[in-house]
């Protein structure tokens, strides 16, 4: 007899961890949409944020103050990155920009650990990790909390894009850089703002992931989980990042539980990539990505 309750449990677990992937992926999409940069350093920024926060708390800073300080640091970091790395590379091919962010991820990772050390820190954000029981299905509180945070973040972005001037200029730039330039938007300023926002997203992602995995170097590797999410959802769609995240979360867990045993397990590390790859071959611009007509 097939155990449906177990299937549902696996599925929910997968979807919830998928939300965590979405949290990381959103940071990518924001930057990609507005400046065409695939920011590989998003994972390093996440690590930097979490490590900074934890270290401040461990050194006796009150929770709220540490949060505010980290927030400020991430905003400054985001803007600094845009100034020093991306701006000199404006108009370079996307792949050059990508490689630059690869270098950047090394710098930020190195700096984070040089500053705060390499040991593993626990991060307690006041949510116990004991699962609770909904109609016989076990659900992790932490996952649920992260899902709520992600949902809130997305709602906040939706409002921000719709109702604020900065949000509007983001959308304008994402839509058509030249037109945005023509109506007098200052692109560097918009880009700076986007990177600052990406810094904030990194903080939120860093805290959620840190609470789950502990704050350590491997946090920066969540970037590798976010990539198939982006491939599935399209690099330029926030909705895609969410749906893609859920899909990847679910696929990974289901594959691990139902397919993994045939291969001796551990297929989580590549299952999402293989699915994303197969998907790419059918739809090269992802679920929600803009289809580009090649112009010659």
């Amino acid at each position: 007899m097939f155990d449906y309750q177990f299937l549902i449990e696996v599925l929910i677990g997968g979807l919830l961890s998928g939300v965590m992937y979405s949290l990381v992926a959103i940071g990518f999409v924001l930057i990609y949409k507005t400046s065409g940069v695939l920011n590989f350093a998003q994972g390093a920024m996440l690590l930097f944020a979490a490590l900074t926060f934890v270290s401040l708390v461990e050194r006796g800073t009150p929770f709220a103050a540490a949060l505010a300080a980290t927030l400020a640091i991430m905003i400054v970091l985001g803007i600094a990155v845009e100034r020093t790395v991306l701006r000199p590379l404006v108009n370079q091919p996307p792949i050059t920009l990508f490689m630059a962010t690869l270098g950047l991820s090394y710098v930020i990772e190195g700096a984070a650990q040089l500053l705060w050390g390499t040991q593993v820190h626990g991060l307690d954000i006041g949510i116990s990790d004991t699962p609770f029981d909904v109609a016989g299905v076990l659900i992790s509180r932490l996952d649920l909390f992260a899902a709520a945070v992600a949902g809130g973040l997305v709602a906040l972005f939706a409002l921000f894009f719709r109702y604020t001037r900065t949000g509007l200029s983001f959308r304008a730039v994402a839509d058509d850089q030249f037109a945005a330039l023509a109506v007098g938007l200052r692109l560097p300023r918009v880009w700076g703002a986007v990177w600052a926002v990406a810094g904030i997203v990194a903080l939120v992602g860093g805290l959620s992931w840190g609470a789950r995995l502990g704050v350590q170097f491997s946090l920066s590797l969540v970037v590798l989980k976010a990539l198939p999410v982006l491939v599935l959802g399209g690099f330029d769609s926030i909705a895609g990042a969410i749906v893609g995240g859920l899909l990847v979360g679910a696929i990974e867990k289901l594959a691990e539980v139902y397919v993994g045993p045939f291969f001796g397990g551990g297929i989580e590390v590549w299952a999402a990539y293989v699915v994303a790859l197969g998907f790419l071959l059918i739809r090269p611009s992802g679920l929600f990505g803009q289809k580009l007509v090649e112009r010659v």
């Binding site: 270098g103 090394y106 040089l114």
Partner: peptide, 17 residues
């Protein structure tokens, strides 16, 4: 190791620019 990371990463950026 960390300073190596920082320098290599920074060099990548500097060369690309």
């Amino acid at each position: 190791e960390m300073s190596q990371h920082i320098v290599i990463g920074a060099l990548i950026i500097v060369f690309l620019i």
